[in-house]
Each structure stands twice: as C-alpha cells, then as structure tokens.
Amino acid sequence: MPRVHDRGGWPEAGPINQAEHDLSLWEKRTDALLVLLASPAKQVLRVDELRRTIESLAPDAYEKLSYYERWITAVEALLIEKGILTREEIDRKAEEL
C-alpha cells in the first residue's frame, strides 16, 4: 500500500475537477512565507523538509485539507520542531486576530 501522498495509479480516483480559483491573500502569504524561509539567503527550512512534513500528515488530514492548508500546517510544524516558534505563542497571536 503506497503512502497517502504517493498518488500515482490509485484505482478509485474519479473525474478531475477542472475548476480553478485565483489564490486568495492568505494562500499567497503562505506561499511567500515558505519561499522566504527556504530562500538561499535565509535557509530556515528546506523544501525537502516541507515535503517530509506534508507527507507525514495523517492520511485523512492529507486528503481533507486544501493545498495551502497542508502547507501552512507543515510550515507551522517545522517552525515548532526547529524551536523557532512555540505552539503557545502562535495560538496567542492567532487569538488576537
């Protein structure tokens, strides 16, 4: 059984939804955060680490979350793992918004 991200050839896959949406602000910000954190100038994290974290999501979370929801979940987990931010300070800041 392949892992959840390894999608090639899954037999139950249905029609492809071809609807597109323009990225919303929070999605662009999520993308920008990752680009900056992974940039050669900062190297706070690496794209491979992001992949590893996304690929480690629980299978139901992987399938349920939207693309950038997966990304920000992984960025948050990595920043906590690296000791750069704590869950508590993110929670506190999020409460203020």
């Binding site: 929070w26 910000r29 999520t30 920008a32 955060l33 900056l36 954190l37 900062k42 706070v44 950038y68 929801e69 920000i72 979940t73 960025v75 948050e76 920043l79 750069i84 931010l85 300070e89 993110i90 800041k93 999020a94 203020e96 918004l97």
Partner: peptide, 23 residues
C-alpha cells in the same frame, strides 16, 4: 488557517526572521 498564517508571519517579522517588505 488564515489566522495561523497571519500569526506565524507576524511572529517571524517580530523576531527579525523576515520583514513585511520581503513578504
């Protein structure tokens, strides 16, 4: 998720890991 992104971004800016201008 919007709150998580904006919270993380503002904390990283406060800690000097990036600037609003870079974002």
């Amino acid at each position: 998720y919007e709150k998580r992104v904006y919270a993380i971004q503002s904390l990283l800016i406060e800690k000097g890991l990036m600037t609003a201008d870079e974002v």
